[in-house]
Simulated assay, not measured.
Amino acid sequence: MILEVAILPVIPGKNAEFEAAFQQASSIISSMKGYISHELQVCLEDSNKYLLLVHWETLEDHTVGFRGSAEYQEWRKLLHHFYDPFPVVEHYIVNQSYKPQ
Rank of each mutant, 00 (worst) to 15 (best):
A70Q: 11
E60Q: 14
L59E: 04
H80L: 13
Q41K: 13
E57V: 08
G68S: 04
V64D: 01
I28R: 01
D84F: 11
Q41R: 11
N95Y: 02
K77R: 15
Y50L: 00
D46A: 11
V54W: 06
V94R: 02
L79R: 10
C43H: 12
E57N: 15
Y92G: 12
H38G: 06
V88C: 01
E39M: 10
I36H: 09
P85A: 07
P87Y: 05
L59P: 04
R76V: 09
H38S: 11
H80Y: 15
L52Y: 04
V89W: 01
H62T: 05
I93Y: 09
W75N: 07
S37T: 09
E45F: 11
L78S: 02
V88M: 12
H55R: 11
L78E: 04
G65F: 01
R67V: 10
Y35V: 10
L44C: 11
E57A: 14
L78N: 08
K33D: 14
R67D: 01
S30A: 14
E90Y: 01
V42Y: 02
V54L: 09
I28C: 06
Y98V: 08
D61P: 10
H91N: 05
K33S: 15
K77L: 12
V94A: 00
S69W: 05
S69P: 08
S47C: 07
D61V: 06
V94D: 04
T63P: 04
E39H: 06
V42P: 10
D84W: 10
N48A: 07
I28D: 01
E71C: 04
Y50T: 08
W56F: 06
E45C: 07
